[in-house]
Nucleic acid binder design. Structure first.
Lengths: 207, 207
DNA sequence: GTCTATAGCTGGATAGAC
DNA sequence: GTCTATCCAGCTATAGAC
C-alpha cells in the first residue's frame, strides 16, 4: 500500500524534463513532444502520469516558486542584525540563482501573465508575504531610531536589495554582450557581486 | 509613387494590436485571431499586410528593444557630470517604464530565449553596447582618481543602477502583494523611487 | 483592401494492443 | 507501464470572391 518512491524512474525523468523545458520556454512554447523526447519516452506516457499539460505545468511552477523564495523567509525571520541579514540575503540569492539562472525570468514572466497565482501560492505557504516586509521594516526603523543608519524608506531599501541581487540574472544576455564575456566570466562577476553589493548597500546606509 | 503614411489606418491598427498582444503574452501564446479582433479586422488581412506571424513579431520586437534602450545612449554619451548622469538615467528609466510597464519582461524574456537577437539588433544600431560601458567606466574611474567618490567597480555600479530602476517593474505582481497595494499605489512608490534611488546610490559613493 | 471559406499543419489528448 | 495509431481542436496561412 505504500506509494513507491524509489522505483518510478519514469515519473522522475518526466518531471525533470518538464522542469527543464517549461523553465526555458514557458508554458505556451514548451511542447509535450519535446518534453517526452527529453525524458526518453513518448507523449502518451506523459498523459498517463500527469493527465494534462496544465497539471504538469502547475506542479513545476509551484516547485519553481518555492525554489525562488526558498530560504528567504528563514533569513528574514532570523535574529540576525541588519548588516548580517543584508549580507545573508544577497549571498543566498546570488548563490541560488547561479545554480538556477533561469528561475527568475520564468517565475516572474508567468506571474506577470497571471498575478493571481502568487496569492494562491502564498495562501498555501501559510504566512502572507507582507509579514516579511513588516518584520524587515521594523528592524530598519529601529536601527534608524538608534541612529545606526541613515533615514531611508524600508520598502524602497528592500526593493533595492532584491533588485541588485536578482536583476543581473534576468538581464544576463545583455550583460554578457556589454561586458564582452561568456558564461564563465559572467559567473565570476556574480561571485564578486556577493561582496560588492552588501558593501555598497551598507555604505549607502552609513550615517 | 510616394508611399502612403497617413492613409493606412489598418496597418497602424494592426501594429498597435500586435504590439499589445505580443508584449503581453509573448510570441507563442499570442494568437493571430486575437490580434485581428483587437485591431477590428480579420485574420486574412494580417497576412495581407505582414505575410507571416514571425515577420510581424520581428517588427514589434525590434521596436520594443529600441524603446527599452531609447534615450540611454544619449544620456551616457552626454557631457553631464556623474551625479547628474546617474539622476538622469534613473529618472529616464522609471519614467519610460511607468508608461510601458511590461516592456522589460517581454524584451528580456525573448532575449533569454534567443540571445543572438541582441547582437543582431546592436549590429543594426551601429555602436556596440560595450562602448556605452567604456564611456561610463572612464568617467567613474576619473572621479575615483580625483577622490570625489569611493573606489567601486564601474561595471558593478552600472549593474546596480539599472537593476534598481528596472527590476521593480518586472517583480510588480510580487511587490503589489507584499506592499498590499494596487496599480495606483505601485505607481506612487515608483514615482518616489525616482529620487530615492539616486540619493541611495550617491550616498553609497560618498568617500 | 477586405472579406469568407478552407486547406494544411501542429500539438494535446485518448483508445487500445501488448 | 509503455507503446503505436488516431482523433480532434486550434492555429497559421492561402485562395478566391467582392
Amino acid at each position: 500500500m505504500v506509494k513507491e518512491k524509489l522505483d518510478n524512474q519514469t515519473e522522475k525523468a518526466i518531471l525533470e524534463a518538464a522542469g527543464k523545458l517549461f523553465t526555458r520556454k514557458g508554458f505556451a512554447a514548451a511542447r509535450m513532444e519535446d518534453i517526452a523526447k527529453e525524458a526518453g519516452i513518448n507523449r502518451a506516457l506523459l498523459h498517463y502520469y500527469f493527465r494534462s499539460k496544465e497539471k504538469m505545468f502547475d506542479l513545476i511552477f509551484d516547485q519553481r516558486v518555492n525554489e525562488f523564495f526558498s530560504g528567504l523567509g528563514e533569513i528574514m525571520f532570523s535574529e540576525k542584525g541588519l548588516e548580517e541579514k543584508i549580507r545573508a540575503i544577497v549571498e543566498h540569492e546570488i548563490t541560488t540563482l547561479s545554480a538556477h539562472p533561469d528561475l527568475p525570468i520564468f517565475v516572474l514572466q508567468e506571474l506577470n501573465q497571471n498575478p493571481q497565482r502568487f496569492l494562491d501560492h502564498a495562501g498555501k505557504a501559510g504566512a502572507h508575504p507582507s509579514t516579511l516586509l513588516k518584520k524587515f521594516s521594523a528592524q530598519v526603523k529601529d536601527e534608524i531610531k538608534k541612529g545606526k543608519i541613515r533615514n531611508v524608506d524600508p520598502s524602497q531599501l528592500l526593493m533595492s536589495i532584491m533588485s541588485m541581487a536578482i536583476y543581473p540574472f534576468i538581464a544576463k544576455p545583455i550583460l554578457k554582450t556589454i561586458f564582452e564575456t561568456d558564461e564563465q566570466g559572467f559567473n565570476l562577476i556574480m561571485k564578486k557581486r556577493k561582496k560588492e553589493v552588501p558593501d555598497f548597500i551598507l555604505s549607502a546606509l552609513k550615517v
